[in-house]
């Protein structure tokens, strides 16, 4: 290996690492606030990329149907409770949020010729289609079980992940798609050639991390999410509803996942089953940080990215094995040196 190859691999590793960092942060956040280990995080990467590919090929992405279906399901679930409690205003509000908004988005996308629009608009439309799936998913799959154990919630996550992957196959077909780069061209620095998409990925990830930091540090809603993560009972007594915290967290997680997919798709071809593996690497990074520390998770993600790219050079058949194996010493280390906390009933 010479310097130019090392630089190339380093660049690859950093790019992937930046994406894994975003996913790892989302996983840590979702777990802290809702105790859900959010395996479907990776599916949002795939859905983002494939929805974008669908829009660019001039088709109506299948995501529309999932959005409408989940919205309708959420209204039925809310409606059941609202009718039982005779609170029709709640039903109206739920219908407006979960049905009218998705319908408006679907109508907008069906009405526009998305393949003729400029890239930033396509990005925005993809986000509009995929991100609302996050809070809807929380409403339909997790909210009824908000008080369940971490293990139960994990099982739900596995089910949701499988369902999303299966639907992904149905909506987008088995082939992998690659979307055009945000901008063409490259930057040459001596030995190193950096292509523009790499800069986009690293730049956007950095900006997104700063925005998340500001959201959690400076806004009352961000603080409310942190408060829920720190002390659930205390947060409820302040009138911070568990449901609101859950939906908001899933919204942010879906936004991160979808945007990661849009960033990633010009670099790697993405198919309906790519999301799981990408999400899992974010999960490895989050575990490196103990599923509790944002900075450690981010550092872990960059490490995972670099490890993956260098092992793909030396032992490409084993690159996934190597990445997933590092979780074992970390878990051993943690189980030896951290106190086991029994989960409250």
């Amino acid at each position: 290996m010479d310097l130019s190859i090392a630089l190339l691999l380093g660049q690859d590793g950093l790019t992937n690492g930046a994406i894994y960092a975003l996913l790892a942060l989302a996983l840590v956040m979702v777990f802290a606030v809702t105790r859900v280990i959010f395996i479907p995080q990776g599916q949002f990467v795939a859905y983002g990329a494939l929805t974008m590919a669908g829009l660019q090929s001039g088709k109506l992405p299948g995501t529309v149907w999932l959005l409408l279906g989940l919205g309708a399901l959420a209204v039925v679930m809310d409606g059941w409770i609202a009718l039982r409690d005779k609170q029709l205003r709640k039903l109206a509000r739920s219908a407006a949020f979960n049905l009218l908004v998705p319908l408006a988005i679907a109508g907008l996308i069906a009405g526009l010729k998305a393949d003729t629009l400029p890239l930033p608009v396509q990005i925005l439309l993809s986000l509009l289609l995929v991100v609302p799936l996050g809070p809807l998913l929380y409403r339909v799959a997790y909210q009824p079980l908000a008080e369940a154990t971490v293990l139960t919630l994990l099982i739900v996550s596995v089910a949701v992940d499988f369902a999303m992957m299966g639907l992904g196959l149905l909506f987008f077909g088995p082939e992998a798609f690659r979307t055009p780069a945000f901008s063409e061209g490259s930057l040459t620095l001596g030995e190193l050639t950096i292509n523009a998409q790499t800069l986009w990925v690293i730049g956007c990830s950095a900006v997104l991390i700063v925005v998340l930091f500001l959201f959690f540090e400076k806004t009352l809603y961000g603080k409310a999410l942190r408060a829920t993560a720190l002390n659930r009972v205390g947060a409820r007594l302040m009138g911070i509803p568990t449901t609101m915290a859950g939906k908001l967290t899933f919204f942010v997680a879906a936004l991160i996942g979808t945007f990661s997919g849009l960033l990633f798709a010009p670099i790697t071809p993405i198919s309906y089953d790519t999301g799981f593996l990408i999400g899992l690497k974010g999960f490895v990074a989050a575990i490196l940080g103990g599923l509790g520390s944002y900075p450690l998770a981010a550092v872990g993600a960059v490490f995972v990215g670099l490890l993956e790219s260098f092992s793909s050079f030396w032992a490409s058949e084993y690159k996934e094995v190597i990445v997933f194996t590092i979780i074992i010493p970390v878990l051993l280390w943690r189980s030896l040196f951290s106190h086991h906390v029994e989960e409250e009933e």
Binding site: K223, A227, A235, L237
Partner: peptide, 13 residues
């Protein structure tokens, strides 16, 4: 509003 026995503050904030 209830001030609970255990206070339930947000310790890290």
């Amino acid at each position: 509003n209830l001030v609970p026995e255990k206070r339930e503050l947000f310790a890290d904030m």
